[in-house]
């Protein structure tokens, strides 16, 4: 039973990280109908930036709390900047091009960013500094759930609530929903669609960066290639939940995380990535609109 609960908790942790990345996919898809292949790379850049900042600060002897805050903020700022720039360079000029063009451009951007980090930094796996301390109250249940799991679950919950608030109640959130429903109409009622698109990329990238920071400190190491697999899995989660739907992305991510956790725990860990891909193919065959997506997709 303990093993089951342990797998369940690690599945939830996994799933909530996927959710942070999947939200970026789903929001961008909802607004401009593009699969942003470079999103996984934005997540990787977030993890790398926080790694660099955290290591530099710890070498210069800053206290742990300051390191966590500064690394998190830096990761979010730079990831957002990358997300914004990628949109401006690779997607904006192609907004009226044939469907294939932005997709190819996105693939190119993903390859470009991956190799940029490889060349600017290194191809080795790097040890990520320990940012999350072992809490004493976790000790009695430490064999089931670690303190980093708890931090990840709490952080993602807070971030999700903040995002829901932003989309439901703020001006920019309203503008985003309007643009997703009908871009031309949104333009007509005076919404600056370009700015809304930029804002979507910035918010999605910041979420991915937080995900990157959390997973890197949870696993304890990073590498330039982590974005590729994480990106595909988060996309799978977004499709599973119904692409374009925000609650769908969260639900899909949790299901994917749990599936992976149980499958690797009870079946075999060799095929960890195969489960996610097979799940993706199965959803697309039997329910391409996803769990919460509607046929006449109402997007957020």
């Amino acid at each position: 039973m303990d093993y089951f609960i342990e797998l369940f908790c690690s599945g939830l942790t996994r799933g909530s990280i996927y959710a942070l990345i999947a939200l970026g996919y789903t929001m961008v898809y909802g607004i401009i109908g593009l699969i942003n292949f470079a999103h996984g790379e934005i997540y990787m850049i977030g993890a790398f930036t926080s790694f660099i900042v955290a290591t530099v600060l710890s070498i210069y002897g800053f206290p742990l709390a300051a390191i966590v805050v500064v690394a998190g903020v830096a990761a979010a700022i730079w990831s957002s900047a990358y997300g914004y720039t990628v949109e401006k360079i690779a997607y904006k000029p192609l907004r009226h091009a044939p469907r294939l063009a932005p997709l190819i451009s996105a693939i190119g951007m993903s390859i470009l960013l991956q190799n940029y980090v490889l060349l600017a930094q290194t191809s080795d796996f790097l040890p990520f500094p320990e940012l999350i301390p072992e809490f004493s109250f976790v000790e009695p249940i430490a064999h089931i759930i670690g303190s980093s799991d708890i931090v990840i679950l709490l952080t993602t919950t807070v971030v999700m609530l903040a995002l829901t608030f932003l989309i439901k109640f703020t001006r920019i959130g309203k503008a985003m929903r309007a643009t997703a429903q009908d871009r031309t109409m949104a333009l007509l009622v005076g919404i600056n669609v370009d700015r809304v698109i930029s804002a979507t990329f910035i918010i999605g990238s910041a979420l991915a960066a937080i995900g990157g920071l959390l997973i890197a400190s949870h696993i304890g190491q990073i590498n330039f290639a982590i974005g590729f697999i994480a990106g595909i899995k988060a996309f799978t989660a977004a499709v599973l939940g119904g692409i374009g739907s925000i609650p769908g992305a969260v639900l899909g991510s949790l299901i994917l995380g749990l599936t992976e956790s149980f499958a690797t725990g009870y079946i075999s860990s060799d095929y960890e990535d195969v489960f996610a891909f097979s799940l993706l193919v199965l959803i697309l065959i039997f329910k391409p609109s996803g769990l919460l997506g509607k046929a006449e997709t109402k997007k957020v």
Binding site: I232, V239, D270, Y271, V274, S278, L284
Partner: peptide, 28 residues
């Protein structure tokens, strides 16, 4: 067969996933 009925973007990502599955199976 299952994928070509869907929108073009799905095809891109499913073929990407399929490529990885084949490689992972060959590896494991």
């Amino acid at each position: 067969f299952p994928v070509l009925r869907l929108r073009g973007d799905y095809l891109a990502i499913v073929t990407l996933g399929f490529g990885e599955i084949i490689r992972l199976i060959l590896e494991n």
